[in-house]
Design a protein around this nucleic acid. Structure first.
Length: 961
RNA sequence: GCGGGGGUGUCCGAGUUUGGUCAAAGGAGACAGGCUUAGGACCUGUUGGCAUAGGCCUGCGCGGGUUCAAGUCCCGUCCCCCGCACCA
């Protein structure tokens, strides 16, 4: 019988929604549980990655709900930011790649496509589609609290305005400047995702050493200002265009491009004259430290696009400089071209100023030789530079020539040196990008310093301390993520929290700025608690003043006054305040681990800023990022599985279970089509299996096997519950689904007729344990078993210690071991037995065995001591030979047995013969043989090969023929 | 570079905190048998090597060490993945 999942899912979803079982309202009588999932960004459909994380949230929500917690799982949509606008724009421009992705991956129908040129329509479209998927997969959501972000949901915007006004009043938001990678065409910062080229490149601050030249300066850019002590000359590209410019109140000579850059970096620049670099070649400048006069040489390798286009040369320590000089020496013709006396170049001698392990006086000269670098255009120059820079930075010590910095490690003195140089007006700085960055619009980017930018001051030391405290207090799953949090919090600095473009909420005090996407999503969980009221009571945007939020969230002000001013009934205000306090704090938030450094940290930061300690988040869980067929999920590469498609293909429960079984902890789960369809098949068999189980009409009396199964299921309850409490969702699903299945399978194999009452009990527990993972299947079966309530809201199975039965477990493991041993013998001997005899140990062996166990607890016992001890027993003494032989054979095993096992064996001594007799029919069936069971010393026994004497406690002797 | 997470059998993946039922759970795949009109269904067995009696050998990235005992603890070493900001 093939199951129609779609129909089954539909049926139960309707019933759940009709009965409103997931709508949660405050109930002071009950403990509450508030779980959240970061609202997904609506520039595309939900994918199985969202599904994985959100399913973990839902599993926990359903688990807690069944445990009796009043559980709230709300949902919302994130519209804030640039990408939706960008995507809509690309559709408008007819970008084929974008359109193809929409059609093929997202499955957007043709007629909708035209409308997607409008970002708002796009957001609405994906929100609608995604909501369908979220409902279909069966998340237990209270939709009354749903919303989306940006000014298009004005009530939420009011909330964000309140949040930022409050943060500003508290001094956590401030104005500042900041360098960004900037596209002059788009007139906006160019993030990684908006780049055609230069991913991961960010602005770097170069130090400029200002070398006096006539009445002006040549500001040469460097990451290694300490090397100024080794300067021998300057390189200028003779073919590049340079300018003489007034920069503030100094005259600088820099490349034309550099002058343009400085303008973007808030410098006052006035270009006075443009000229070719060759004009400078052959002239002399001064070293600002020693005042030496040094020459300017032609450097065709100098990139005028990079920094200032002015480069000073340190041939002793910079391979590029050394090789450039060498080139000039070897090609006097080139010097003549530019009218330079070769003698000047020949006279240049490297100046050694850093001593570094493994190198002599002139490391650059050595490394050029080692790597066999041909000339300044050899690609190996870069490699040489990297090696040497790294080495000199970490292990290099400045030589006496370096004045007050002599004897110090480069690494430790660098910052101080730069500060000194700036103070002495020897140095300045410029920002630049070390590699080319090209915007999506094909424009070349540069660094711009944004003025009037607003920042969240995550650098504030007190705020940091409080947030660390919040991270310490919260439950974090897995625990290994905690140090990651602390580390990232230390590292966070000012965060630019507003943008010029994209959808969002305008910054209340500064129109033209929009609260940036990661900054309007930090405390919005509080909004869920009151959005229900806003909708129910039709509260208008303009009624939601700062005072209203102040009252609800911070209990500031007088209700009556607030009510009067806002026009919101005092009772409603009080209700909202109460509802907020009921649900807050957030008990659990789950996201992928990529959000730890930003979103989840901001979430903690802002809660500590705005709310008292008792409302700080209680729990955070992170998980890995979903891979598709072993590779990173990527829409542009087509390696992308939408949630909707997964559900269509495999059904909701299979999609849930496949995701959950994929991974836990910080590991990345791998979504494989094959796994999902195999899970689907497994769920079908699960359904059939349950049908069979409950149709059986077996016996009524309780046997030890029934006790064993009841014991086993109790252990499983314990395991699953424990795993879920600590968000080990994979373990929980694995134990709940597969291990219990195997338990029941074993039971059915062992018993001839199952006990139907026991089986029903076990099935009843089983499907309840599985409800969080596969709610539709379980709901259906719960109904088929005759229940008329929802399994989704029924009680979670509770662990009943009284049903734990060590004896049943031990007897069963005796049978399992015996079965294994017997099989092993059959395999080794390759005989097909017709008859098998088992011989259980003689009483004296048990006597010795138990005494040995006792003596070896808790510390190991030696053979000699043990035998001495045993010989005090006259009966054993009379058979000293056998006893010694037996002890020799068993002592090793006994000594290496873990203590708790020893204790267990001492506590319940089993009757082997009785157990084997009970298992006789089973074993006969298994091996298709006749079985005889004897006492080891039974005079009547059949024992042609004299095997009986091998018997040990827990290990009957075996004979077969 | 800084920080985080890892390396286990054909594959995926537990186990490592608290050393001992660990030749190593569970799943997938493969093989064999059973059931069946049929089955991408189900059940049973096998799936590191050797072995005509329940055993032995090898084994958890690599090299050492601690211990009666190490996948698990210690030291060293190699390799892989992820994040690093104005962007969701």
């Amino acid at each position: 019988m093939k199951i129609n999942w779609k129909k089954l899912e539909e049926k139960w979803r309707r019933k759940w929604e009709k009965a409103k079982i997931f709508e949660a309202d405050p109930d002071p009588e009950r403990k509450k549980c508030f779980v959240t999932f970061p609202y997904p960004y609506m520039n595309g459909p939900l994918h199985v990655g969202h599904g994985f994380t959100a399913t973990r949230v839902d599993v926990y929500a359903r688990f807690k709900r069944m445990q009796g917690y009043n559980t709230l799982f709300p949902w919302a949509w994130h519209w804030t930011g640039e990408p939706i606008v960008g995507a809509a724009l690309r559709v408008k421009m007819g970008d084929q790649k974008e359109i193809r992705a929409l059609k093929v991956i997202d499955g957007v129908p043709e007629e909708k496509l035209k409308k997607l040129v409008d970002p708002v329509y796009m957001a609405q479209y994906y929100t609608r589609e995604s909501k369908k998927a979220v409902r279909r997969i069966g998340y237990s959501i209270d939709w009354r609290r749903e919303f989306h972000t940006t000014s298009l949901e004005p009530t939420f915007s009011r909330f964000v305005e309140w949040q930022y006004n409050t943060l500003r009043e508290m001094g956590y938001v401030a104005k500042g400047t900041h360098p960004v990678v900037w596209c002059p065409n788009c007139e906006s910062p160019t993030g990684d995702h908006d780049r055609l080229e230069g991913e991961g490149v960010s602005p770097e601050e170069y130090t400029l050493i200002k070398f006096p030249f006539n009445n002006s300066y040549l500001p040469a850019a460097t990451f290694r200002p300490e090397t100024i002590y080794g300067v021998t000359n300057m390189f200028i590209n003779p073919e590049a265009t340079y300018v003489e410019a007034q920069v503030e109140d100094e005259k600088w000579i820099i490349s034309k491009q550099a002058a343009e850059k400085l303008v973007e970096q808030l410098r006052k620049v006035k270009i006075e004259r443009e000229f070719k670099g060759i004009e400078l070649v052959g002239k002399f400048f001064r070293d600002p430290i020693t005042k030496r006069k040094l020459p300017i040489l032609p450097g065709w390798f100098v990139n005028s696009d990079s920094a200032t286009g002015v480069v000073y040369s340190v041939p002793a320590h910079a391979p590029a400089d050394w090789i450039a000089i060498k080139d000039l020496v070897e090609n006097p013709g080139r010097l003549q071209e530019v009218g330079l006396d070769p003698g000047i170049v020949k006279n240049i001698k490297p100046i050694s100023m850093i001593s570094v392990e493994g190198f002599g006086e002139y490391p650059a000269v050595e490394i050029v030789k080692q790597l066999k670098i041909k000339d300044q255009f050899d690609p190996k120059v870069e490699e040489a530079t990297n090696i040497l820079y790294k080495k000199e930075f970490h292990t290099g010590v400045l030589k006496p020539i370096c004045g007050k910095y002599a004897g110090k490690l480069v690494k430790t003195v660098k910052t101080e040196l730069i500060e000194d140089f700036v103070k002495d007006n020897i140095a300045d700085s410029i920002y630049d990008i070390p590699q080319e960055v090209i915007c999506r619009c094909t424009t070349r980017c540069l660094v711009k310093i944004l003025a009037d930018q607003w920042f969240l001051l995550y650098s504030d030391p007190e705020w940091k301390i409080k947030t660390h405290e919040a991270a310490d207090k919260a439950n974090i799953y897995p625990e290994t993520a905690r140090s990651y949090f602390h580390d990232r919090m230390d590292w966070l600095r000012e965060w630019a929290c507003v943008r010029r473009t994209g959808l969002g909420t305008p910054l209340p005090w500064s129109p033209g700025w929009i609260v940036e996407t990661l900054s309007d999503s930090t405390i919005y969980m509080a909004f869920y608690t009151i959005n229900k009221h806003i909708k129910q009571h039709g509260i208008k945007t303009e009624q939601l003043s700062g005072k209203v939020f102040d009252y609800i969230f911070l209990e500031k002000g007088n209700v009556k006054k607030v009510a009067e001013d806002s026009g919101v009934e005092p009772a409603i205000l009080e209700e909202m305040r109460a509802e907020f306090l009921y649900w807050y704090p957030v008990d659990l938030r789950i996201s992928a681990k990529e959000l730890i450094p930003n979103h989840l940290s901001f979430f903690l930061f802002q809660h500590t800023a705005l709310f008292p300690r008792e409302l700080w988040p209680r729990g955070i869980s992170v998980n890995g990022m979903v891979m598709i067929e072993g590779a990173k999920m990527s829409k542009s590469k087509g390696n992308f599985v939408t949630l909707k498609n997964a559900i269509n293909q495999h059904g909701a429960d299979a999609t849930r279970l496949t995701s959950i079984l994929g991974a836990q902890g910080m590991d990345d789960p791998d979504w494989r089509e094959k796994n999902a369809s195999s899970t689907n098949v497994k769920l079908q068999s699960f359904h059939n299996f349950l049908n069979q189980l409950t149709k059986n009409s077996g016996r009524k009396e309780i046997t030890s096997l029934d006790l064993w199964l009841l014991n086993a299921i109790q252990k499983r309850i314990h395991q699953v519950t424990e795993a879920l409490e600590t968000l080990k969702t994979r373990t929980a699903a694995e134990v709940g689904f597969f291990e219990i299945w195997n338990d029941i399978r074993w039971y059915l194999r062992r018993v001839r007729k199952p006990n139907q009452i026991v089986l029903n009990q076990v099935v009843n527990i089983w499907i309840r344990l599985l409800t969080p993972f596969i709610p539709y299947t379980c709901e259906e079966f719960w109904y088929l078993m005759g229940n008329r309530d929802f399994i989704s809201t029924t009680d979670w199975p509770s662990y009943d210690k009284s049903k734990i039965n060590v004896e049943a477990e031990e007897s069963e493991s005796l049978v399992k071991n015996l079965l294994e041993d017997t099989l092993n013998i059959i395999k080794a001997t390759e005989i097909t037995p017709k008859r098998i005899c088992y011989y259980v140990s003689a009483p004296w062996k048990w006597n010795v065995y138990l005494k040995s166990l006792e003596k070896s607890t808790p510390i190991r016992v030696t053979l000699g001591n043990l035998i001495k001890e045993l010989m005090t027993d006259p009966e054993l003494k009379s058979m000293a030979g056998s006893v010694t032989k037996f002890v020799k054979e068993t002592l090793d095993e006994i000594n290496r047995m873990p203590d708790d096992r020893k204790k267990r064996r001492l506590q319940s001594v089993m009757n082997e013969k009785k157990i084997l007799k009970e298992a006789k029919r089973f074993l006969e069936r298994e091996f298709n043989v006749t079985i005889n069971i004897y006492d080891e010393e039974d005079m009547q026994r059949y024992d042609p090969k004299k095997r009986a004497s091998i018997a040990k406690p827990y290990r009957p002797a075996i004979y077969m023929e």
